[in-house]
Amino acid sequence: MDLQLTGRRALITGGSRGIGLGIARSLAAEGVNLVLIARDDTRLSHVASEICSEFNVDVRTHSADLYENHAADDIASKHADVDILVNNANTPSGGSLESVSDEQWMHNWSLKPFGYIRMMRAFVPILRARGGGVIANMIGAIGQLPSNKAIYSAASCSALTTITEGLAHDLSNMSIRVLGFNSWVVNTEKNVHAFRERAATSLGDAARWPELHSNLPFKRAAEPSEIGDLLTFCVSPRAAYLSGQVISLDGGYVASSLPTIAKGALAHE
């Protein structure tokens, strides 16, 4: 299937590793030119070189700290040829209502959701001037299964779900689609390192880390490439009527974890 993406330009925040890199590779495989945003300039250069060599697309990099208020406007001023904006930059943070200070809340929120908000505000005029485009927000399934153990992350993801859904109608008048994506456990480099450490402690062998996923659907976590492939189709012209949706790629974990009548006291014998 030709996704009709060849020659488009996508900008990906947090694009040098993890889910962002998986998205970058999937888009590049379809001929999409890239702008990768992250804080580590050395890492960015290495990833850009690899993608250019493998997929023969143009890859620009931009080192930026999206915690900073001015970063989004600075990025937009230098990359006005973007057709697809992927908001992905995130630093997961746990902590309960009682343990997270005001300063921590404000610092965390300055990246997610406010980093996403600032990027959308900066790039909507660009997309409108180019005749339309797509905004894809990587949100997170924790917003659907909130817990006081990670109350900040749950609240920020819930806020981004509302923003994504709320923008869709008005932005459709500018030929801009807006989508959200919820993942659960993903085999990013950082997560696999953590799984290996946990397996070494709890199972006595770091190599047994996949066994820690036995409670997940299909007894495994998602791969960054699977998220990238789904997003690539959704932002393509082949899905041109898809907007205002927050799509879950969690193997059915959230749906099967939510309480229902069928699982409760009123369940039929």
Rank of each mutant, 00 (worst) to 15 (best):
D2K: 06
T6F: 10
I12T: 06
I12R: 01
S16W: 06
G18Q: 01
L21A: 10
G22A: 06
E30F: 01
G31R: 01
N33H: 08
L36A: 10
T42G: 15
R43S: 14
S45A: 15
V47F: 02
V47C: 03
A48S: 08
S49A: 15
I51G: 02
V57D: 08
L66N: 06
A71C: 12
A76Y: 10
A76S: 13
K78R: 15
A80L: 10
A80Y: 06
V86G: 02
N90P: 05
N90A: 12
S93N: 12
S93W: 03
E98T: 14
S99P: 05
S99H: 07
V100A: 03
H107R: 15
N108M: 08
K112F: 11
M119L: 15
A122P: 02
F123T: 04
A129D: 14
I135Q: 02
G143M: 07
G143S: 10
K149D: 14
A150I: 05
A154R: 01
C157N: 15
T161G: 09
T162P: 00
T164H: 11
L167K: 00
A168G: 03
D170G: 11
S175G: 01
R177V: 08
T188K: 02
E189P: 07
K190I: 05
N191Y: 04
V192L: 04
H193C: 09
A194Q: 11
R198F: 00
T201Y: 11
W209Y: 15
L216S: 12
L216V: 12
K219D: 09
A221T: 06
I227E: 10
V235W: 09
S236P: 03
S236E: 10
Y241L: 09
G244D: 12
G244H: 13
G252W: 12
G252I: 10
L258N: 07
L266V: 09
A267R: 15
E269T: 15
E269R: 14
